[in-house]
């Protein structure tokens, strides 16, 4: 209590942020009751009739739901397997570059796609992969391989999705690892050098363990997004021919919720998504704790 009075101005400073969270993050959560009601525009949230688990029953009995859930999970699993290690490897590589100018240039080039909107990137990717005019197929032709219409193929589409994510944000993702690497005590490297460790051994025994907890936290946070797939990326890349692999929860929510005005149903879906996200975060955190890392809490 004494400290409360003593630091009163600091607390006063904190108030706006507290308000921000209460007003914009916690109060809207009350809207979740919509998932248990038949939301009607004129009646508003409070007066709309309660319907219990009706929307959840519809959700779990809809075959569409399992398809989009499968697509969402698959895209995320691919992305954890293939995307997640890329920024780590990139930052390890960058860390070994000694020429400052070269390093900065490479970093900037890697960051650039992150600042381009998916609307533009989507167009670039589609034209790069075009079977008639795209660069990729022109190269394939040199090796006498028949042109492939990547964007139309249900096999290639997820591949394009993951590769385009890497292209777009792997460079940006290195920032946090680069920062963690900077935090490693330089003396450790010196000691290892004296003991005769080569570059590879230094990376394996010093750099990687040094950023282990950062990797763990990034993984936990990533697990929480297992049911999220960025709307824009999918929306820009998808087309009617690959609907069966590209329809994910976020695009489905958009189609049904906003375009179809089924607010209660999509709220139920959103709630389901959050609950799964929470379970995944806490269980990954548990696993990480068991492995001897701090994790999130």
């Amino acid at each position: 209590m004494r400290s409360l009075i003593y630091d009163r101005y600091l607390y006063l400073l904190m108030l706006p942020i507290l308000f921000y969270f209460v007003i914009f993050k916690y109060l809207p959560m009350l809207g979740l009751v919509m998932a248990f009601k038949d939301f009607n525009l004129t009646m508003g949230i409070i007066d709309s009739p309660w319907v219990g688990l009706k929307h959840f029953e519809r959700l779990f009995s809809s075959p569409d739901f399992y398809q989009i859930l499968r697509n969402t999970l698959l895209l995320n699993v691919y992305s954890i397997l293939f995307y997640f290690p890329v920024p780590i490897i990139l930052s390890l590589l960058l860390n070994e570059v000694k020429n400052r100018v070269f390093k900065k240039t490479v970093q900037s080039i890697l960051y650039i796609p992150y600042f381009i909107s998916w609307v533009v990137l989507g167009g670039i990717i589609i034209s790069l992969l075009s079977p008639s005019t795209g660069v990729v197929n022109a190269i394939l032709k040199l090796f006498h391989i028949e042109p492939i219409y990547f964007m139309k193929s249900t096999f290639w589409w997820p591949v394009v999705y993951v590769l385009s994510s890497i292209w777009q944000s792997a460079g940006w993702g290195t920032i946090i690892y680069m920062a963690a690497i900077t935090g490693i005590d330089a003396e450790q490297y010196e000691a290892a050098l004296i003991d005769g460790a080569n570059k590879w051994q230094q990376v394996w025994h010093i750099t990687l363990p040094g950023i282990r907890s950062t990797i763990a936290i990034m993984l936990i946070l990533r697990m929480g997004q297992m049911l999220d797939v960025g709307f824009e990326q999918v929306y820009m890349l998808q087309n009617d021919a690959v609907h069966s692999v590209s329809e994910v929860i976020s695009t489905y929510e958009y189609r049904i919720g906003l375009a179809g005005a089924q607010y209660s149903y999509t709220t139920a879906l959103g709630l389901f998504k959050s609950v799964i996200g929470l379970i995944l975060i806490t269980s990954t955190n548990k696993v990480v704790n068991l492995l001897g890392e701090d994790g999130l809490w």
């Binding site: 569409d64 139309k152 087309n239 009617d240 021919a241 609907h243 069966s244 329809e247 189609r255 049904i256 375009a259 179809g260 005005a261 089924q262």
Partner: peptide, 21 residues
């Protein structure tokens, strides 16, 4: 009907594209 069209229309478009191509 309003509900079903928002779910059916994407199916219609995707089946149509599968037939054509």
């Amino acid at each position: 009907f309003v509900r079903i069209t928002s779910e059916f229309s994407p199916k219609r478009d995707s089946i149509r594209m599968n037939v054509i191509t």
